[in-house]
């Protein structure tokens, strides 16, 4: 009996050590395989302003409340309009800064007089909730200088962005962490349409404003 148990024990030990080996081989080889497919610097989420259809879901889909998505103004593109379609509600009776004339539900857009007849529009990010009403207004009737970006001082960088999951136009993409913003004013014209699921955004890469 004892001999039998002993024999069984060794067999079991053999199975166990074989199992260990079988498990250990993929575990040790997996990092080697993945090493090729690795990016040391990592990725963050960002909205491609040229894919965004300003569907207003960024406001509610983000895991943060208020959303980490904020509107931002690309000043080199801005027309500095007196009748700013991103600032004034459509159908407003007067072009005034009164609350009932403003498009922004939280009053986050600040209007400053520059010179006749131009006004500068800036976003108060503390008030902005990323509803993209102004973005739609500006894109439809203006220069499209207002656009949404995920602000990385607020974003918690979820493994799967909750906005990316429901974004109807797949505008929320992974971008390299060292270039976390896709600034609309810096865009180079793409030579050909990029593939639908491209994860790194070549056309925004390494282009800075002259003098910045």
């Amino acid at each position: 009996m004892e001999k039998d148990g002993n024999r069984k024990g060794t067999r079991r030990e053999f199975v166990r050590s074989a199992g260990k080996l079988i498990i250990a081989v993929p575990v040790l080889s997996l990092p080697v395989i993945l090493a090729k497919k690795m990016d040391v610097k990592g990725y963050v989420w960002q909205i491609d302003p040229y894919k965004c259809t300003s569907c207003e879901q960024c406001k509610t889909a983000c895991v943060m409340t208020p959303s980490a998505v904020k509107c931002t103004n690309a000043y080199p593109m801005c027309g500095y309009c007196d009748f700013c379609p991103g600032f004034l509600r459509q159908g407003a009776k007067k072009f005034s800064t009164a609350a009932e004339d403003q498009l922004c539900p939280t009053g986050a857009i600040k209007r400053i007089f520059v010179e006749e007849p131009y006004f500068e529009y800036s976003i108060n990010e503390k008030l902005c909730d990323g509803c993209s009403k102004c973005v739609k207004g500006c894109a439809d009737f203006g220069n499209g200088s207002l656009y949404l970006q995920i602000m990385h001082n607020l974003c918690v960088n979820c493994n799967q962005c909750a906005i990316a999951r429901i974004c109807p136009s797949d505008a929320v993409i992974r971008v390299p962490a060292e270039e976390p913003y896709l600034r609309k004013e810096l865009k180079k014209e793409p030579k050909e349409p990029l593939p639908r699921h491209n994860l790194t955004q070549a056309r925004f890469k390494n282009n800075r404003l002259p003098g910045s």
Binding site: Y118, E120, Q149, M151, H152, C155, A177, P180
Partner: peptide
């Protein structure tokens, strides 16, 4: 712009 207006530089923050 005649008055020498320069647009404000937006400070994007990093993670």
């Amino acid at each position: 712009f005649e008055g020498g207006y320069t647009f404000p530089e937006h400070q994007f923050q990093y993670q």
